[in-house]
Design a protein around this nucleic acid. Structure first.
Lengths: 139, 139
DNA sequence: AATAATAGTTTGATAGTCAAAATATCTATT
DNA sequence: AATAGATATTTTGACTATCAAACTATTATT
């Protein structure tokens, strides 16, 4: 059903736009820049990661990421660690302070998720999780 | 169920991150900047809008938006129109070329949505739409 | 009528970004 | 094992995006 798909598509875009807005507002409040929070979010969720991989996930060049990570190292949020097998590569990981920041930020997301699904039944919430998991796997 | 909610939360964040990545990649390919595409997307979805409102949705100050809209006017994507009742306000709306760009971009989103839900039944897709609508209303 | 609040623009300083060049390391071919 | 090509990261210089604050014009409040 074409029209139905159109609605789903637009609902997804609307959701994305609203989440972006929310994230921007949250980030501005706590004094860090959006790329920094984004980085903390990705590392917190996925664990240590190579520069290249991280740059792709964030959507910037590695050159841009280098200067961002420099700042975050200075701020004590992340650290650079040697890759075990590939000496060209560097792993970026959260420091304890970075982990704390991730958890703080994650709490805000948790609250948002709770607010958004306040009218969902236990069963609906579980179905929604299943849908998201399947969609995320298709990316 | 606390743990379940945590999973839903993280699945949502993962979805958001992946969609961001996708959007970045798409935008870079077609030569426009992310804020410009973002603006076209919002105007195409919501119709004409005041500067203030648009700035809030995008997550920038009105000063920043002014220069962005200047560029987009020059590029022929949007135009400024007087507000009917409030002479302080200005409505920004898509030109025909802007509308075309919106539809082109929307097609890419449509394709992505179709790809992501390729394994969904008609019923699941409809349920997913219902979930997104309810969530969007809670924002 | 005066004052405060709001919408938008302009400006100067700061931060973010990219492309291209440079360095170091890894992989593949001969 | 030697060479050539590919890959990961950093550095650099130019450009773009961003904000905060000052400014203009209009509307709302008292």
């Amino acid at each position: 059903m074409k029209n139905q798909d159109d609605h789903l598509n637009h609902a997804i875009i609307e959701f994305y736009e609203k989440l972006s807005s929310w994230e921007m507002a949250v980030v501005k409040d706590n004094g860090f820049s959006l790329p920094q929070v984004h980085t903390v979010e990705i590392l917190g969720l996925n664990g240590p990661m190579r520069m290249k991989e991280l740059a792709e996930k964030i959507g910037v060049t590695t050159g841009t990421l280098t200067v961002q990570i420099d700042k975050m190292v200075k701020a004590g949020l992340v650290l650079r660690r040697a890759h075990e097998t590939d000496r060209r590569s560097i792993l970026v990981e959260l420091t304890d302070a970075g982990q704390v920041m991730f958890e703080e930020h994650d709490k805000l997301h948790m609250q948002l998720t709770a607010d958004l699904t306040v009218n969902f039944s236990e069963q609906e919430r579980s179905l929604m999780l299943d849908f998201f998991k399947r969609i995320n796997n298709e990316f």
